[in-house]
Every structure is written in C-alpha cells, then in structure tokens.
Design a protein around this nucleic acid. Sequence first.
DNA 1: GGTGTAAATGAGAAAGGTTTTCATTTATAT
DNA 2: ATATAAATGAAAACCTTTCTCATTTACACC
Lengths: 137, 137
Amino acid sequence: MESQDLRKVGLKVTLPRLKVLEILETTDHRHMSAEDVYKALLEMGEEIGLATVYRVLTQFEDAGLVSRLSIDGGHAVFELEDGSHHDHLLCVRCNRIEEFVDDVIEQRQRAIAVEKGFEMTDHSLYIYGICRHCQSS
Amino acid sequence: MESQDLRKVGLKVTLPRLKVLEILETTDHRHMSAEDVYKALLEMGEEIGLATVYRVLTQFEDAGLVSRLSIDGGHAVFELEDGSHHDHLLCVRCNRIEEFVDDVIEQRQRAIAVEKGFEMTDHSLYIYGICRHCQSS
DNA sequence: GGTGTAAATGAGAAAGGTTTTCATTTATAT
DNA sequence: ATATAAATGAAAACCTTTCTCATTTACACC
C-alpha cells in the first residue's frame, strides 16, 4: 500500500524501504534516529543493516518523505513529512520533542534575511527547556 | 593581562589557556573551530595539542568566556562571549557567519515556551542562505 | 515466466569531529 | 623549596555517519 509512495518518488520498492517506512508510520515516537529505526526493525525480527537504514532515510529525505532534524551537536532524528513546516521544542531532561508553528517568527526570519542581503534557503530553530512533565517530577 | 580573566573564573593560568585566549582575541575570524584555533597556534610557533585546545575551549565555554555554535550536522565553532545575545545567519556557499538580534523573535520564543509549558533554558536559531557576496559571484 | 542489467543491500572498514586515557609536566598553596 | 592537585600531549577510543565492494534483488524486456 505504500509501494506507490516509493515508486512515485522514483525509488524501487524493496523490503528494507518498506520496512523503514512502516516503522516511521507506526511508531509512537514521531522522532527517531537512524539507530532507533534500526533497533526497532531488529526487534521486529527484520534483518537489515544499519548502513541501509542510513541510506534509506537519506533517500527518503531527498524524496521529501521525511525530514531530518539535526539536534544540537549530536545525531540526527527523522520525522515523517506531513507537509506542515514547523519548528521544535526539546526537553533537555527527557528529550521529548514538541512542535510549534509561529508565523510571526517565520516572517521576521524572512525580513532579517532580506535586511542582511541573504537569499534564505533554510532555517532551523530549536527552543531548549524543561517540559511540563519534567518540571513536576 | 588576561591572567585575571582566567583566575576570575577559577582556571589556573597556563600557557595553553593564555594562548587560546590570545588567538580568539586577535583573530579577524570571529568564529573559529577547535581545529582553526589549533592551526593558528601551530602557525604562531606554539606547541600545543589538539586535545588541549578542545579541553580549553570547553572550559572557556563552561566559564562563560566563549560560546559554542553547533553548525548544522557538523563541527562546532566558538566565538568570544561579549555579553550580547544574538543569533546567526550562515552562508551555505562560503560559510560566512553573520550575527543578528531580533527582539520580536526573542519575545515570541519566550511566549511559545510558556504556551507549551516549557521552562526555556536556551534556544538556537540559524538562518541559512546565500550571502550578498556569493549571490553576485 | 525466464533473464539481463542496473540498482540496492549488508558487513565491515573508513571517515571526521570530539573525548578519554594515562604517563608526564606544571601551577599554585604552604 | 616542595608537595599536591590540576593541566598537558600523544595516542587511542568514541560515536555517528558514510563508503567500499562483493552479493543479492527489483524490474524492464523478451
């Protein structure tokens, strides 16, 4: 059923690709590292190589199926692309990731790029803090 | 003359620390990686180990003397702390880094953290793009 | 349905930036 | 001066990610 999704973006339909997609679609953790995906697949009894997971995730990113977040100075996490641009809040205690959209910030960013003579290609905004849950525990 | 700065933050005054500080204070590149600092010192004829540069920069960061920028998915760069909070624009062609301050964005970030129940500890915002210089060349 | 071919995979090696280990040296308090 | 805890340098270890290359697989074509 996702075979079409893969073909649509010019990727051959292979078991590893289907399985990675399945993990991303069925996990309760919207944000997963390559390692997370790899371990989830092993736990499901799938045989897959870590290098393949990295390759597939990168292909998915290029194809616009997922987006990659580069968390401060460390590993990357991936999220299924749902077409909505958003930025992220990260809990420094439990690593929970929440999403938000703010048009005011989006607009200011564009204005700043113009002011500084930059042709903006991308931006990344992370708010770090302690989430509600961790504050009370 | 910077010996006091080091003592003030509880660091012994050692040659490597003085030299790293000197590089950061005298370079025309406000943003330098550990490797950059290391190479600059070697070129000055100083003997220093790369591990020491990393250690010293991390200590300076902890002491509030420098701040560390974690550039998208790669190495870190350091800048002398001048007390002013600012964010960064990065040129994806030439790696030039420019700084900006925007109170509207700062305020929106605080508001979003509150809305989401986060106690904000930090944030990072990078605008990526093509700088004026690179657009015209 | 076979079959050829280019693409995909897996295992392990390699890369790149950063941190750790540990023996040696050094700064500072006494 | 001297003792002691801290700092240093070199090399090894680390960690995430990418690359290499021999083997396997998907898909277009007959």
